[in-house]
């Protein structure tokens, strides 16, 4: 998988930038990222499998392949809650299935986000953490708007997740995604997406994003462009 290998090399370089270059000593330690990955047929994947691989290559990111860990949906609630406690950024990474997440991510929410843990009077464990969806969609970007055949933007379709995050007191970031994913490989768009994803992970770790400003955008990419964070040199 040469694509993944090249991107890993990028990640390695980026890692070393942070390690040896521009990080000052009094800066707070990096944000810890928990990436919950859900793809029910990974063996057919053309984009998500590579995303999973490059994410695993980034130091400081905890990657959980949910379908691998809980093939019969028997999610270990205590373990998952402990994972949440130990991280600052929670990422759902998934291909869009019927305008939503694959089933196991819904199961994960139903089981793990308990009253008294995630919400409710004593449920304050998630407060102040960041939440992000990294999706891939089969349809083109133009299909996901009012005039398109899908009629809603992905941000609108993922409203339940946005509200869940908000109720739990998390900072919601607009979704980061790849459209036209079924043809992305043939059209040579995967490599760029992988590089953008690795860059974003580093930016999340470094706390370079402003959630208030990002809130205003339909997609995270739009914010990154606007904030000048979409260039290779932008990761610090």
């Amino acid at each position: 998988m040469p694509v993944a290998r090249f991107s890993c090399a990028c990640v390695y370089l980026l890692n070393n930038f942070t390690r040896f270059g521009l990080v000052t000593l009094d800066m707070p330690s990096e944000n810890r990222i928990l990436l919950l990955f859900a793809h029910p047929s990974l063996e057919r994947s053309e984009v998500n499998a590579d995303l999973l691989a490059v994410s695993r290559g980034v130091e400081g990111v905890t990657v959980v392949d949910l379908y691998a860990e809980y093939p019969s949906f028997r999610i270990d609630i205590d373990r998952e809650q402990q994972r949440l406690r130990e991280h600052d950024v929670v990422v759902f990474m998934f291909p869009l299935y019927w305008y939503s997440t694959p089933a196991i991510l819904k199961e994960w929410q139903d089981l793990v986000l308990e009253h008294g843990f995630a919400y409710g009077h004593e449920g304050t464990e998630l407060r102040g953490k960041w939440f992000l969806c990294a999706f891939t969609a089969g349809g083109s970007e133009s299909a996901y708007r009012e005039q398109g055949y899908n009629h809603y933007s992905v941000r609108e379709l993922l409203r339940p997740l946005e509200q869940t995050a908000t109720l739990c007191g998390m900072h919601y970031l607009p979704p980061f995604g790849l459209f036209g994913a079924r043809t992305a490989l043939d059209e040579g768009r995967v490599e760029g997406h992988l590089q953008g994803w690795c860059r974003l992970l580093k930016q999340l770790q470094g706390g370079q994003l402003e959630p208030q400003r990002a809130q205003e955008f339909e997609q995270l990419q739009h914010y990154l462009t606007e904030a000048g964070l979409d260039q290779a040199g932008a990761a610090r």
């Binding site: 999610i75 609630i77 308990e114 009253h115 919400y119 409710g120």
Partner: peptide, 8 residues
């Protein structure tokens, strides 16, 4: 029944 329990 954890997880499918309705909130109090």
């Amino acid at each position: 029944e954890r997880g499918w329990t309705p909130p109090p």
